[in-house]
């Protein structure tokens, strides 16, 4: 496999486990906890976030050389908000039931840390293709995490899967898993599980603060460019 292909594949795959945005980077916690009570809303949220992530990464990567440093965050937000609005309108038109289910959390994708975080950390520094792959990988990681968490919470918490009743579990389940404390508990267990997997694979687990403790250390190649944001900081 060529170096480029390997690199592309690694960009795509690292968002799934090694740099999973929810379980490793611990970003996007709010929609994760709010929308994993049901599998359908979790998948809906995951797909919507992925679409916004890919589109915004591509556009921001395309404009990365044109956007001045001083206004980069407002520009990123405008782009992200634009795509979120598009997703909202399309979902309201063609999937109104899902739109109602996601409610306010659909609009809150604008301030989802994953999207702004990847725009800032990756898309603003890499090519369009790589940025698209990164967005897709992160989105798939987000979607899979939400799906697994929603499956656990809905199956064990309500005895249903995507609304379909499961025999035995429908009568014997743990309703607390559907409530916020249960959500946090499942979330914590999943983080612990992923950390265990990563340790066994010899991947770095966040034990240090700062740059070196960041799982995305490799993404920015460990180089913290002090000139970035210098004007904004007034230096």
């Amino acid at each position: 496999m060529s170096k480029t292909n390997k690199s592309s594949l690694s960009i795509l795959l690292r968002g799934i486990i090694a740099e999973n945005p929810v379980l490793v980077l611990v970003l996007g916690t709010c929609p994760t906890l709010a929308q994993t009570g049901s599998v359908i809303s979790a998948v809906g949220m995951g797909i919507a976030a992925t679409a916004v992530l890919v589109c915004s990464n591509v556009v921001i990567s395309l404009l990365r050389r044109a956007i001045p440093d001083t206004v980069r965050i407002p520009c990123y937000i405008v782009v992200i908000a634009g795509f979120v609005s598009v997703v909202q309108m399309l979902m309201n038109a063609y999937l109104p039931a899902l739109y109602d289910m996601l409610g306010v959390y659909l609009a809150l994708i604008v301030v989802n840390c994953i999207i702004l975080g990847r725009a800032e950390m990756f898309a603003s520094k890499n090519s369009v293709g790589a940025s698209a792959l990164d967005g897709l990988g992160m989105g798939i990681g987000f979607l899979l995490t939400l799906f697994v968490m929603a499956t656990i919470r809905e199956v064990l918490g309500a005895g249903t899967f995507a609304g379909i009743k499961i025999p035995f579990l429908i009568n014997y389940n743990f309703p607390i898993l559907k409530s916020p404390p249960g959500g946090f508990f499942v979330f914590g267990c999943m983080i612990a599980a992923v950390n265990t997997i990563l340790k066994k694979r010899g991947k770095p687990v966040r034990e240090k603060a700062g740059c070196e403790g960041c799982p995305s250390f490799a993404a920015c190649e460990g180089k913290f460019d002090e000139s970035v944001g210098k004007d904004a900081r007034g230096e």
Partner: peptide, 28 residues
């Protein structure tokens, strides 16, 4: 340059949104 770039991005996004709204408003 900062003002111009931000304005242009806002204008383009607004155009995109108005286009999508034209398409989806009747259905909604």
């Amino acid at each position: 340059k900062s003002v111009v770039v931000l304005t242009v991005i806002c204008a383009v996004v607004a155009l995109m949104l108005s286009g999508v709204n034209e398409l989806t408003a009747p259905i909604i």
